[in-house]
Amino acid sequence: MGVIELLEGSLWTLSVCIFVVFGLWRIFVILTAGRSPTQARPVGSPRGGAVRAIFGHFLPRRAFLGQGRVWFVTIAGYAFHIGLFALLFFAAPHVAFLRDHILGFDWPALPRWGFIIAAQFAFTGLLALWVRRFVDPVVRLISRPDDHIAAGLTFLVMLTGCMALGEQSVTLRGIHLGFVEAWLIYFPFSSLMHTFTWPLSRGFTGALAGRRGTRM
């Protein structure tokens, strides 16, 4: 059981450290890049605009609702993200893991049927979005290797997690943990970082729009 101990011990610690240290480093580099030009006298509030954009971009504007692809990406995107969020923070084994190893407290976990439903949404959304990367000429053209690796790793983390759902096998748990660690190590170097960069991006645009008295 040497491998399991490694996965649960030093490898786990190492991957979490890489995730945290390089993730923070990346945010730091983003925010200190180059220089910011002096801004014009504002018409409206840049801060208000930033807040508005951060929340406003959660849903597509009415002008784009006539387009099938906008619907597709929005629905599949939410199915995947909400499903994944529910699995990540409310699956019973995860709640227990976070309580025992990191936080020291817990919160109500999803019942089994809730887990299953969340997993269905997460898998369907991820599969649909990933498949589209291969068959939509637009996304096919702009997809980077990173986008496929990120999607693939996330898929494997989810799949191995679900395979270990019986909670009877140390091996299955170890496989899941191994993929989680690979995912954590890959995370800060990849587009998975959008988990943390989205408010920055929206906020900068919103601040510009707020300053100019428009909505972007």
Binding site: I116, C162, M163, L165, G166, S169, T171
Partner: peptide, 12 residues
């Protein structure tokens, strides 16, 4: 191990 994993994935 393979069988339990397969069953979980299959049902999911």
């Amino acid at each position: 191990i393979i069988a339990t994993a397969s069953m979980q994935a299959h049902n999911l």
